[in-house]
Amino acid sequence: MTEIIAVKNLWKNFGDNQVLKNIDYIINQGEKIVVVGPSGSGKSTFLRCLNLLETPTSGKIIFEGEDITNASKRLNKIRRKMGMVFQNFNLFPHLTVRGNIILAPVNLKLMNRDEANKRADKLLARIGLSDKAETYPNMLSGGQKQRIAILRSLAMNPDIMLFDEPTSSLDPEMIGEVLALMKDLASEGMTMVVVTHEMGFAREVATKVLFMDGGRILEEAAPEEFFTAPKHPRLADFLSKVL
């Protein structure tokens, strides 16, 4: 299996607060890693360290064989290969749906405007929102916004997608459509790291589930084992509360 991201001795402090404590982890191509844990466990920070939205206090992030922890100049190039989806969508409100999708590819000269537009049309058709291409984000439902945000990342043809609680700020009835798109991506072989509270998604899609608490990965297992035979008492306790 090809290694996509290797995390080595990752520490992250916010002031005196140690949020990540010596994380080591390897993500291989095609894997779908789902990270669960109580709030404040460091799981979002872990995810945000992977594309350096948070700068690690110490340790290394190796992406496709390259140490990107101090690659300040190359970082923008590397980030193109790592799509990120946020809890609050973060669509650009001053641009149309199409504008949101083509902004980065056109501006970074990865595609010309025609190519980017075609790609946007294709992506929108895939989720059945072709008619929304010229609307502004404020006219969309939460589920539509999040699916557009996912398309915006896909337009860059990333090698890996990072999801930071993608369904946590959605109305319950919108969650399904976002998860469906994510499952779709997973089945196409996209490498994914997903921080979520959706245990059903973890059970169904994950190749590995990680349990984080107190800034450490306490357990790592295939979903079947993770949910039915948790080894760490903290995980057993957590599962008894959320399932």
């Binding site: 594309n51 939205l53 923008n76 190039k77 590397i78 980030r79 193109r80 790592m82 799509g83 990120m84 946020f86 973060n90 669509l91 650009f92 902004l103 980065a104 501006n107 970074l108 945000a149 915006r152 990342s153 860059m156």
Partner: peptide, 10 residues
């Protein structure tokens, strides 16, 4: 908004 832009590689 800034994080979304940066995460796209801008």
């Amino acid at each position: 908004q800034t994080e979304a832009g940066r995460s796209l590689g801008l």
